[in-house]
Computed example of a mutant assay.
Amino acid sequence: MPAHTSAAIRLSSSRVEFSVPSDDGRVVDVGFDISGTTAHALRHLLAAQLDPATGRPLCGRSRTLLERVLQAAGAVVERIEVLPGDPARLALAMITPDGVVRRIDLDLLDAAELLASHRVVAVALGWPDRDWDGGLRELSR
């Protein structure tokens, strides 16, 4: 696991992007095109978790509904996994009461809320290295 486990979230009216540490120590930027309605919902979710003036977590914030449900079922949240694909896949890894690691798919709203809470770490798994030379060649065409 890399030393840096914080994820950054960038939100615009049509896109949300996560910068997530990878399992090999790089930082992977993952973006999703979103609707105006989703952008509006994300703004509210993030505002409930972060001080808008500083971007720091608010004191005394409560656990997310997903965290409370999993806790009630006896599961412990392990991490968010960001898997390559088009679009990228978001999964929540958790440990069940019998000690087995299980994964469930996450949607953007749940992932953003968990990441903004700063109680759940994220890791990008299996992302290929970028071909910077190939990208520069494509730009010159």
Rank of each mutant, 00 (worst) to 15 (best):
P2T: 02
T5Y: 09
S6C: 10
S6P: 02
A7V: 02
A8M: 04
S14C: 04
S14D: 14
R15N: 07
V16W: 06
F18W: 14
F18C: 13
V20N: 10
V20S: 09
V20I: 14
P21H: 01
D23T: 03
G25Y: 00
R26D: 07
R26I: 02
V28Q: 10
V28T: 10
D29K: 12
V30N: 09
V30M: 07
V30K: 08
F32M: 09
D33P: 01
D33M: 10
D33A: 15
I34Q: 12
I34W: 09
I34D: 12
I34G: 11
T38M: 15
T38N: 10
T38H: 13
A41R: 14
L42K: 07
H44M: 11
L46C: 05
L46N: 06
L46V: 11
A48W: 03
D51Y: 11
P52N: 05
P52G: 03
A53F: 10
G55F: 02
G55N: 06
R56Q: 09
R56K: 06
L58D: 04
L58K: 11
C59L: 14
G60T: 04
G60P: 06
R61H: 04
L65V: 14
L65Q: 15
L65C: 12
L66C: 07
L66Y: 06
E67C: 02
R68C: 08
R68H: 07
V69K: 13
L70V: 00
L70K: 02
L70E: 10
Q71N: 10
G74L: 05
G74Q: 06
V77N: 12
E78G: 05
E78T: 12
I80P: 00
E81I: 03
P84T: 03
D86R: 10
P87V: 01
A88F: 03
R89K: 05
R89I: 04
L92K: 06
A93C: 05
A93V: 11
M94C: 13
P97M: 02
P97Q: 02
D98H: 11
D98P: 02
G99K: 14
G99C: 12
G99Y: 12
V100M: 07
V101W: 05
V101D: 08
R102C: 13
R103S: 13
R103G: 08
I104K: 05
I104V: 14
D107M: 11
L108E: 03
L109Q: 15
A111H: 04
A112S: 15
E113G: 08
L115M: 08
L115G: 07
H118M: 08
V121F: 14
A122Y: 11
V123M: 13
A124C: 00
A124W: 00
A124T: 01
L125W: 00
L125E: 02
G126D: 01
G126T: 00
W127T: 03
P128V: 00
D129K: 00
R130A: 08
R130E: 09
D133W: 03
D133L: 10
G134R: 01
L136V: 07
R137S: 07
E138H: 05
E138K: 03
